[in-house]
């Protein structure tokens, strides 16, 4: 099959899947939009952690480090594990934890964008050309910053008592 046709088909599938994804999150009424964030059950955190540990430790046991920045498959597993942890609920999920979640997402998203532009600019200065920052590295950074920001804020609140 022609590569361009395949790319177009993949793009159409991507758009359709986005539509299906938004249907999943469709609220029955407008009020419900502001009520609660849809999150995975709490025990998914454990699954996420197992995924990360397996994706980091198993290749190491077999003398092949997957997470070295060049093997994207390993990074995909790590990112998947991080996403599962990010979207799992806490023991008590209330409006304050929802606010902390949203602020952490905002912080990590902004940090990701700034980091992307800075690293692209640095690459251009150093190697005199543009090399694309891989999407999995960027996603991993954003998810990592989100997790750090969320849990640091929560522990700050706990320690301020």
């Amino acid at each position: 099959m022609d590569t361009k046709l395949l790319q177009t088909l993949l793009f159409v599938v991507f758009i359709l899947s986005l539509g299906l994804f938004s249907l999943l999150f469709k609220e029955k009424n407008e009020e419900a939009v502001f009520k609660k964030l849809k999150l995975l059950p709490r025990w998914f955190k454990f699954i996420g952690l197992v995924i990360i540990l397996c994706s980091v430790s198993l290749p190491w046991i077999f003398q092949r480090l997957l997470v070295d920045g060049t093997n994207h498959l390993g990074m995909i597993y790590v990112n998947f594990g991080l996403s599962v942890i990010c979207f799992s609920r806490d023991k008590v999920e209330d409006e304050m934890s929802n606010l902390i979640r949203l602020k952490s997402f905002y912080r990590s998203f902004v940090a990701g964008i700034v980091g992307f532009f800075f690293l692209t600019w640095m690459e251009n200065r150093v190697s005199d050309g543009f090399s694309q920052l891989s999407a999995d590295t960027l996603l991993g950074t954003i998810l990592g910053i989100y997790l750090v920001s969320y849990y640091v804020t929560k522990s700050k609140i706990r320690s301020a008592e």
Binding site: K91, V92, D94, E95, M96, S97, K154, I157, R158, E161
Partner: peptide
Amino acid sequence: IGVSRQTINS
């Protein structure tokens, strides 16, 4: 009221 103790403290 169905929130965490940290929320009440805050």
